[in-house]
């Protein structure tokens, strides 16, 4: 009973289309994590930034009747929340883990509260299709068997994520700015004495991680779910965090990790027909995450100054 269904699932275009979609959903906050950690600021608040993106995306789309405005608002909301993390961890030099946890908890509470207040406890109804992020169909390419469905009938944000992925990989490892970002994350004193504005770069990178997480939230709410549900990110921001480490703090590496986790998520949905308990299946991506992390302990090296606030003049 299990194996025939498993085979059918694993060879279906549906599974791989879903895998890539889930992967893209993880990839955006993971790229945010990569750029933030590369600059030396630990960011575990992608979850909260995504969730804010979900809520603001839906709320603003409903208010403005424009999905584009909604997405922009979601991105900005993520960025603003990241700015809070930046001020707390860069300027006030507070513990970056605590700040991240606080942001995650606050985002969860705030979105729940606003959701209840706004809808009188009814919840937000499903959005009309013209208020959702559209799926792009690539004409004749979309008609290809299997590949058409998997690669050329994805949400518009999926393609955007790939562009951002390649752009970020190039930025970090092939440009002068990328060299400076890596220098700031490895040895902020050295960067400072070389005349690089350490704090400015860290702020920019942290805010960038928020912008990307906000976009991911908009993608989830406006592209995938078509509504807002309390805690709808369901730990994706944390899986993205694992992908950052798993991917050795590089965009391409993180993308690879997201593919694996995305497949896990998609499998947990599609294998429900096999009769395996759905609650058990739902743990699959998280178990994969733990296995991936255990298998890699000691093999990934974080940027040397990751999580360490910079104190000018502390070199003595």
């Amino acid at each position: 009973m299990f194996w025939p269904i498993f085979l059918r699932v694993i060879t279906s275009g549906d599974l791989w289309q879903a895998s890539l979609q889930f992967a893209a959903l993880l990839l955006l906050p993971a790229l945010g994590g990569v750029i933030s950690e590369r600059s030396g600021v630990v960011n575990i608040a992608m979850e909260g930034m995504m969730l804010i993106g979900c809520y603001v995306g839906v709320a603003v789309t409903l208010a403005s009747h424009s999905v584009l405005v909604g997405v922009l608002a979601a991105i900005i909301a993520g960025g603003l929340l990241a700015l809070v993390h930046g001020v707390v961890s860069i300027h006030l030099k507070a513990d970056q883990i605590i700040s991240g946890i606080a942001i995650n908890v606050a985002a969860l509470g705030l979105t729940n509260y606003l959701n209840i207040v706004q809808t009188g406890g009814q919840g937000i109804p499903s959005l009309a299709f013209n208020l959702r992020l559209p799926v792009l169909s690539w004409g004749p390419l979309a008609q290809l068997p299997f590949l058409g469905q998997v690669l050329f009938q994805q949400n518009v944000v999926f393609y955007l994520a790939i562009v951002i992925l390649l752009g970020l990989q190039f930025l970090l490892f092939r440009t002068n700015l990328g060299l400076r970002i890596r220098a700031v994350g490895e040895h902020p004193q050295a960067a400072d004495t070389a005349g690089i504005p350490v704090r400015l770069i860290r702020y920019a990178c942290v805010v960038a991680s928020g912008l990307l997480s906000g976009l991911a939230g908009a993608f989830l709410a406006l592209g995938v779910a078509g509504t807002f549900n309390p805690n709808m990110t369901a730990g994706r921001g944390f899986i993205a965090l694992a992908a950052v480490v798993f991917g050795k703090y590089t965009p391409l590496g993180a993308a690879g990790a997201c593919l694996i986790f995305g497949l896990g998520l998609a499998l947990s949905v599609r294998l429900q027909d096999t009769g395996i308990d759905s609650n058990l299946l739902a743990t699959l991506p998280y178990i994969l995450t733990i296995i991936a992390l255990i298998g890699l302990v000691g093999r990934t090296v974080a940027p040397a100054a990751d999580g360490v606030p910079y104190e000018p003049g502390s070199a003595e």
Partner: peptide, 23 residues
């Protein structure tokens, strides 16, 4: 910065082409 090369360390902050250029 230990993992970077000699040249990268020397030009860091004043790379040819300015901050927005490719390295």
């Amino acid at each position: 910065i230990p993992p970077l090369t000699v040249a990268e360390n020397i030009v860091l902050g004043q790379e040819p082409g300015g901050p927005m250029a490719a390295y």
